[in-house]
Amino acid sequence: MAEISFPLPDLGEGLIEATVLEWLVSPGEQVERNQPLVEVETTKSAVELPSPQAGKVVRIYGGPGDKINVGEPLIVFEVPDNTAGIVGTVPKEEAPKRRVRLSAVFDED
């Protein structure tokens, strides 16, 4: 298994930090891509951050009221080694299925 850290992203308009309002996931939880992770508040607005990937939550940083700077760790995921960082999905090996049958007459061979 590999650990992937996700830092607090730039939330736009040059903001350099955000305050955690509420964590929507907890360590040990399996999350899916785009699942809301945390609600944070900037000087502009309160936003929900969606998960950038699927994986198991290992650690979260900051409790309600704590400030996190852009670029500092926000959450760490655990993912299987062979999917770490990949764009796309690992193909599954499946038994071949067919609908077409072959027929041939090798008369003159």
Partner: peptide, 24 residues
Amino acid sequence: SGDLEDEYIPNIDRILFGMQRVLE
């Protein structure tokens, strides 16, 4: 995109069809 990939990449039946065209 990913959802249409199986229709694009030659699959088993398309290869078998190609072989049948040659065989007959």
